[in-house]
Simulated assay, not measured.
Amino acid sequence: MAAQIRVVMKSFVSQSNRVSELMPNAKKIGLPESRALFTVLRSPHTDKKSREQFSMHVKKQFLEQKVEAHELRKKVLLVKTPACAWGSV
């Protein structure tokens, strides 16, 4: 009996290289990227036209992999490990 593992990954940077390490035979589906814009006044008392804009991009990816039932426990434990275990910044 085959089981399916479905994971949605979210990050601020591109994660394509991490996905291949995590689940090498997974089917990858890109989800829409969300973006938030923030506008901040540089000096609120003197010049209102002087502004700075910042943006935050969140990239999402959907992974789906079929595994056998006896491999499922190993795969789920691998997915639950934190990202810092792989040496990310």
Score class of each variant (00 low, 15 high):
residue 1 M to S: 13
residue 3 A to I: 06
residue 4 Q to M: 09
residue 5 I to H: 00
residue 5 I to G: 00
residue 5 I to A: 01
residue 5 I to S: 00
residue 6 R to A: 13
residue 8 V to H: 05
residue 9 M to P: 02
residue 9 M to F: 03
residue 10 K to A: 09
residue 11 S to R: 01
residue 11 S to L: 01
residue 11 S to A: 15
residue 11 S to I: 00
residue 14 S to A: 14
residue 14 S to I: 08
residue 15 Q to V: 11
residue 15 Q to N: 10
residue 15 Q to G: 11
residue 16 S to T: 07
residue 16 S to H: 11
residue 16 S to Y: 12
residue 16 S to I: 05
residue 17 N to T: 14
residue 17 N to C: 10
residue 18 R to S: 12
residue 18 R to G: 10
residue 19 V to T: 02
residue 20 S to M: 04
residue 20 S to P: 01
residue 21 E to T: 04
residue 21 E to V: 07
residue 22 L to N: 01
residue 22 L to E: 03
residue 23 M to K: 00
residue 24 P to I: 01
residue 26 A to V: 02
residue 27 K to C: 04
residue 27 K to R: 13
residue 27 K to Y: 07
residue 28 K to T: 13
residue 28 K to C: 08
residue 28 K to A: 09
residue 28 K to R: 14
residue 29 I to F: 05
residue 29 I to P: 03
residue 29 I to E: 08
residue 29 I to M: 08
residue 30 G to F: 11
residue 30 G to N: 10
residue 31 L to H: 02
residue 32 P to A: 01
residue 33 E to C: 06
residue 33 E to N: 02
residue 34 S to Y: 05
residue 35 R to E: 07
residue 35 R to F: 05
residue 36 A to W: 05
residue 37 L to W: 02
residue 37 L to R: 09
residue 38 F to K: 11
residue 39 T to W: 01
residue 40 V to I: 13
residue 40 V to M: 13
residue 40 V to H: 07
residue 41 L to G: 03
residue 42 R to T: 09
residue 43 S to N: 15
residue 44 P to A: 10
residue 44 P to F: 00
residue 45 H to Y: 15
residue 46 T to R: 13
residue 48 K to H: 10
residue 48 K to N: 12
residue 49 K to Q: 11
residue 49 K to L: 13
residue 50 S to H: 09
residue 50 S to P: 00
residue 51 R to L: 05
residue 52 E to P: 04
residue 53 Q to A: 08
residue 54 F to H: 08
residue 54 F to A: 07
residue 55 S to L: 10
residue 56 M to I: 08
residue 57 H to V: 14
residue 57 H to E: 07
residue 57 H to I: 13
residue 57 H to A: 09
residue 58 V to A: 04
residue 58 V to D: 00
residue 59 K to P: 01
residue 59 K to Y: 07
residue 59 K to C: 00
residue 60 K to E: 03
residue 60 K to G: 03
residue 62 F to T: 00
residue 62 F to L: 15
residue 62 F to Y: 15
residue 63 L to N: 00
residue 63 L to G: 00
residue 64 E to A: 14
residue 64 E to C: 15
residue 65 Q to E: 11
residue 65 Q to A: 09
residue 66 K to A: 12
residue 67 V to W: 04
residue 67 V to S: 03
residue 68 E to V: 06
residue 69 A to Q: 12
residue 69 A to H: 07
residue 69 A to W: 11
residue 70 H to Q: 15
residue 72 L to M: 05
residue 73 R to V: 14
residue 74 K to G: 12
residue 77 L to D: 12
residue 77 L to T: 13
residue 78 L to N: 10
residue 79 V to A: 09
residue 79 V to R: 02
residue 80 K to I: 02
residue 81 T to H: 10
residue 82 P to A: 04
residue 84 C to Y: 15
residue 84 C to I: 14
residue 85 A to I: 03
residue 85 A to D: 12
residue 86 W to E: 12
residue 86 W to P: 03
residue 86 W to V: 13
residue 87 G to I: 02
residue 88 S to W: 10
residue 88 S to C: 12
residue 89 V to M: 08
